[in-house]
């Protein structure tokens, strides 16, 4: 995607392709809400108000349409290329984002709790999120949109191993 090499290693595993469907659905819901807001703007804000209104009356819809096109037809696939995860012998490792990317690495020995959450849309697609918490308010890893069975197995495995290897350094 870019010429410059990533600062750190890429996690090994990608998400299931159903995640793309989920992201497209999320984008579509966002597009509908934006369309309602823009529609309300066009209907109820009179065009002869002066000031920047005439300019906004065509600029806002154009921006909204561009954003909708990217959100529905580009971003889900880009995200699917960026979102990656990996559970190794001693750590959980993820990459998230699309334009801005974030890599998060948390060692199993410092895990405090592991949660599995299934949002409403996620349930429709049979997906779940694994959230791994540490003692730090910023050191939380979320593995988004795994197949539900996989998520549950990962969470159980991590919780069991964290119990065995936990150290008291934190």
């Amino acid at each position: 995607m870019t010429v410059a090499p990533a600062p750190v290693r890429e996690p090994a595993w990608s998400l299931p392709r159903t995640a793309i469907g989920l992201w497209v659905t999320e984008s579509l819901i966002g597009v509908v809400i934006t369309a309602l807001v823009v529609g309300a703007l066009l209907i109820w804000v009179p065009a002869d108000l002066g000031g920047p209104v005439p300019f906004l009356r065509w600029a806002v819809p154009v921006v909204a349409v561009l954003d909708a096109l990217i959100a529905v037809f580009v971003r889900p696939w880009l995200k699917h290329r960026v979102y990656r995860w990996e559970v190794t012998q001693d750590a959980v490792y993820t990459r998230t984002g699309w334009l801005s990317q974030t890599w998060t690495l948390v060692p199993v020995s410092r895990i405090q709790t592991v949660d599995v959450t299934r949002g409403f849309l996620q349930q429709l697609f049979g997906l779940a999120t694994v959230a791994v918490f540490t003692a730090s308010s910023q050191g939380t890893v979320r593995i988004w949109h795994l197949e539900h069975g996989v998520a549950q197995r990962v969470a159980d495995d991590l919780a069991a191993r964290a119990e065995r290897t936990r150290d008291q350094a934190t």
Binding site: A4, P7, V8, W103, T104, V106, R110, A135, S136, T170
Partner: peptide, 25 residues
């Protein structure tokens, strides 16, 4: 350190930079 978070925005990637957060409890 209980975890690392490496962040790279689009602009940082072009400039060959990245920010690193050391997560501590």
């Amino acid at each position: 350190v209980v975890g690392w978070e490496v962040k790279q925005s689009w602009a940082q990637r072009r400039a060959g930079l990245a920010s690193v957060v050391a997560c501590v409890g």
